[in-house]
Amino acid sequence: MTNLDYFMAAYIFVWVGVFIYLLKLQRDQNRLRKELKSLKRIMAKGRDENKKI
């Protein structure tokens, strides 16, 4: 391996590491959004049922 290979390896590791973490944050955010959506649906449903009563 040349010095350039080592340098590129370190550089790639840094950005891949950061990218994976950002992906994890994004995935968590999407999961929470889905949860929020389903909760809103449940609440809306409950409100509609209350109106009927």
């Binding site: 391996m1 080592y6 370190a10 590791f13 840094v14 590491g17 950061v18 973490y21």
Partner: peptide, 20 residues
């Protein structure tokens, strides 16, 4: 959590620097 991420990068980049 962020500290661990960067600590991991320190260990990896340090190791890559150390080899040559």
């Amino acid at each position: 959590e962020i500290g661990i991420l960067f600590n991991t990068l320190v260990l990896i980049t340090g190791s890559i620097w150390a080899k040559p």
